[in-house]
Computed example of a mutant assay.
Amino acid sequence: MDYTRLLSDSFDYTKEALWGRWTRWLLLLVSTIIFPLIYGYSVRVMSGTKPAPEPEGWIGLFIDGIKLLVITIVYTIPVWILAVVGFAAYFIPVSVTTTQGTGTAPGPETGIFVLLALLVIFVVLAIVIGLLSTFAVVRFSRTGSVGEAFRFGTLLSHIGSVGWLNVFIALLVMGIVITVVQFVLMLIPVLGGLLVFILTPAFIVFSSRYVALIYESAPAPA
């Protein structure tokens, strides 16, 4: 996978979408406050529309944004469940030790061991779900069907065609680039936070186009 091409194409797409188009930029900036709207615009970008679409049809944008939000929340549920189980696995043995004394009850060491084991599982699961949900939201954007976002067999097959490691590295590169840019901006006294906010539409358009290109790296299954 050509990561440089992904970054370059996404940057050019974002530049064409926003640079000099100040009305569009302002509308998208307002949409970040009413966040389902900016999520809906992200859906349109991920749908493969080129050049970037106008932010219009606000009811449709809002509805698509809500759908995208619901899909994302559903995908995070297993991660939250495992996190709760992990904390319970630690605190329950500690509590038993405290209430029953030393005896034969499991001690803090048992809780720590279980917690570490679950931490490893948690990280792996979070990565898998992160990759899966990325392809899920793009597939939803391409088809307009929420149900398509949960065709796990199809999504797993598509990710396998692109390459799990390729997708992971590509998303990692995107995350690093955006984080570095935001960090540098935050170093600017007084104006740093304001600049990050003003550039929020650019970050969203960039990332939406970027994941769309990853999705297109291999033909999507029917």
Rank of each mutant, 00 (worst) to 15 (best):
V96I: 15
I66G: 01
V84L: 10
I73A: 11
F91H: 11
Q100M: 15
Y90M: 15
I66D: 00
I92R: 03
G65H: 08
V96D: 02
V85L: 10
T104G: 10
K67T: 04
G65N: 03
S95R: 07
L82E: 09
T102M: 07
Q100D: 00
S95Q: 11
F91Y: 15
V96N: 09
F91A: 10
P93S: 02
L69D: 01
L68K: 06
T102Q: 03
T98E: 13
Y90G: 03
I63H: 05
D64I: 01
A88D: 06
I71A: 06
I71C: 03
G101A: 04
V84S: 03
T99N: 12
I73R: 06
P78Y: 10
F91T: 07
T102G: 07
G65I: 03
V70G: 02
I73V: 15
T102A: 07
V84R: 04
G101F: 02
L68D: 01
K67C: 00
I77V: 15
Y75G: 00
L69R: 10
V96P: 00
I92S: 00
A88K: 09
P78Q: 06
V85F: 12
Q100F: 15
Y90T: 02
W80E: 11
T102D: 08
Y75C: 04
I77Q: 09
I81L: 14
G103H: 00
G86L: 10
I73T: 13
V94L: 10
T72P: 01
I66S: 01
T99P: 00
T76G: 08
S95M: 12
Y75W: 13
I77T: 06
K67F: 08
I81S: 06
F87G: 14
D64F: 07
Q100S: 13
S95H: 09
A88F: 13
P78F: 06
A88H: 04
G103A: 12
Y75E: 00
G65Y: 07
V79G: 00
W80N: 04
P78S: 03
G86V: 04
L68H: 00
D64Q: 07
T104V: 02
F87A: 14
G101Y: 03
V84W: 08
A88Q: 10
I92D: 02
T72N: 13
L68G: 11
Q100W: 03
I66L: 15
F91M: 06
T76K: 09
L69Y: 11
V94Y: 13
L82K: 05
S95I: 11
